[in-house]
Design a protein around this nucleic acid. Structure first.
Lengths: 184, 184
DNA sequence: CTCAAACTTGGGTGTATACTCAAATTACGT
DNA sequence: ACGTAATTTGAGTATACACCCAAGTTTGAG
């Protein structure tokens, strides 16, 4: 752990380098060498602050997972529209983190064996939150039906997000709103 | 290229090994060593039949991309339901190829620089085909509107497919039908 | 049956990777 | 300013990877 100012700065440079590399070229491009070059740091410095390459990558991945779902304690107040808007905002305001999010979701094995397991847990939490919002807006809706609808909407949103990662010109926001309108 | 029977058999064993490895552990797990071990072949034999590891992987990826969209010449006759059913059938009858399909879609860089470009091209062809079917079933629908609807439905289907790849128990068929019903 | 060509073998090459460490330098509480 | 502990350096280690090749074995057309 960094204790001095310089150490904290180096840590930040390393995290920045890791994030941009993950966003640009996925795990493939995120080697120790490329991280150190971009961060302008020698490998010994890296290992003075991080136990492994994994650790740096995991920090960035966690950062992206948390960023997609802000205010996790606020559950019980957001509407479906709020949640969808937050998702859209994430993609337009944090495209780099958003790309990391998509990349992370897909690489099951690479980041420790449980990367996809972590992602699944995160997804299930999100489904619950969407289902809550749906049940709140329609009192006739049973819990199970709300969960099904939430899976459907989130599945669609994630698919559109993936589509956007294939082609950044894809109007993710437009399609996300359409999906929400028809599936909520 | 294989010329003798034994050569063809070895080729098949290598392709089978590559496919199952890709399905089980993605590109990460698909090393020359693991392919040769599973195919019960020495590396020299591999290189007698394939120019590179890439070639074997690409063959399997292409196989999966073609399998998801059968009868590509039949455009102009299928209904939206036909297309959705074909997609669902692919996932239930060829789960291994389906997993390769999802894995391939996600790994932009790894299989040559244009893996995601190839996937995008394939996706756009599919969008057109879905849009055709939609325009056919609803004569009031403009071409652009049909394309938008097709992107929406295919995005949702791909998202649900990804969801299934995270958790094989996920009832992909059920959700795919629901999505089609609401988005077609 | 013959023999050239296809196929197999398995050790060997070169390169990239993640990670280590002793020695030198720098930061900062006292 | 001093001294300790944090930080940096860069050469060095070990390992995994894709790929090569000379020497043998097997195949199958004529």
């Amino acid at each position: 752990m960094a204790r001095y100012q310089v150490g904290l700065q180096t840590e930040a440079k390393i995290i920045d380098a890791t994030r941009s590399l993950l966003a640009e070229g996925g795990l493939e491009a995120t080697t120790l060498k490329s991280i150190c070059e971009r961060a302008e740091v020698r490998s010994g410095s890296f290992y003075n602050l991080f136990d492994s390459k994994e650790e740096a990558i995991l920090r960035v991945v966690r950062e992206s997972i948390e960023a997609v779902d802000p205010d996790p304690d606020g559950a019980g107040t957001d509407s479906v529209d709020d949640l969808v808007r937050a998702y859209i905002r994430f993609f337009s305001e944090e495209p780099q983190l958003a790309r990391v999010y998509v990349v992370a979701a897909l690489n099951g094995d690479s980041t420790g064996e449980s990367a996809s397991r972590r992602f699944l847990r995160h997804h299930l939490r999100r489904v619950e939150r969407f289902a809550d919002a749906m049940a709140r807006s329609d009192t006739h809706l049973g819990r199970d039906e709300a969960t099904v609808k939430a899976e459907l909407l989130l599945g669609a949103l994630d698919g559109l997000a993936f589509r956007w990662s294939l082609e950044p010109e894809f109007e993710f926001d437009k399609y996300a709103l359409l999906a929400a309108e028809r599936l909520k």
